[in-house]
């Protein structure tokens, strides 16, 4: 059930002309999830949204579950050096080995970011409330027995419990709390996670959503989806439409 990497996929992505974030993996650990299809999907989603991100001018960017640090490093490179020192990057992971690897990855690319070993954003949720402009999450989404969720080591990086939703359902209210009034959440899901239900749930809390990127999974059984959930003020026409319907 683990999420294996596909070399072909990596080759494909290397050829993509718009790829600006070439991340060198400078460290690895047997208990740390290496960047795979889903990481690439998330980074490609961010890349394809680069113009919007630059226009958005986020001040505070947080990644929950950073693993090797591939995504947060890419996000920092995508937002670019012209805003040098202008963005506060912070990333968390429950796996201490992952955070050490992420440290190496960030250092190797000259990105100033702080890392915290914690479960989702525990210990940060009070003070970071309504401060986060961009949150990125590649959650553990693989449907597994519930007891595998949050295990030690690499299992925590993919074990998602029933429908792969256990950790996602824990992250969504945290995201809702931390995101600023103009906050955006980029998240990877599988078809099996019922992303339309996730969007509906977040819509009730005032978030618009759109699929940024969608790709078939290796087994061909479904899709991996990179979605953007954003606070409604970005899409005033949607708020109006919605209130009329209700």
């Amino acid at each position: 059930m683990s999420r294996h990497s596909s070399l072909e996929f990596r080759e494909d992505i290397r050829k993509m002309p718009y790829r600006t974030a070439q991340i060198r993996l400078v460290a690895s650990h047997p208990e740390v999830y290496e960047p795979c299809d889903d990481s690439f999907l998330l980074v490609d989603a961010l890349l394809s949204d680069q113009a919007n991100l630059l226009h958005h001018q986020p001040r505070v960017c947080v990644e929950v579950g950073c693993g090797s640090g591939y995504v947060i490093t890419s996000l920092a490179l995508i937002l670019g050096k012209q805003e040098s020192g202008g963005v506060y990057y912070m990333a968390t992971d429950i796996n201490p080995h992952a955070v050490s690897v992420a440290r190496e990855t960030l250092n190797a690319h000259g990105i100033d970011a702080d890392l915290v070993i914690t479960d989702v954003a525990s210990g940060l949720d009070k003070r970071l409330e309504k401060l986060v402009d961009v949150m990125v999450v590649n959650p553990p989404y693989v449907p597994t027995p519930e007891e595998e969720v949050g295990c030690d080591g690499i299992t925590a990086s993919w074990a998602g419990g029933e429908d792969g939703r256990s950790v996602i359902d824990k992250i969504l209210p945290v995201a809702d709390k931390l995101l600023s009034d103009r906050g955006w959440l980029y998240m990877v899901t599988l078809t099996a996670n019922n992303p339309s239900e996730i969007c509906l749930q977040m819509r009730r809390k005032g978030y618009a959503s759109r699929i940024v990127l969608q790709r078939s999974t290796e087994d061909g059984q479904g899709s991996m989806i990179g979605s953007l959930l954003s606070q409604f003020p970005r899409f005033p026409f949607l708020t109006h439409g919605d209130s009329k319907k209700n």
Partner: peptide, 13 residues
């Protein structure tokens, strides 16, 4: 860890 991050952390016990 920068003091910026210290400023964002609380005891979560």
């Amino acid at each position: 860890m920068r003091l910026l991050t210290h400023n964002m952390l609380s005891s979560n016990i």
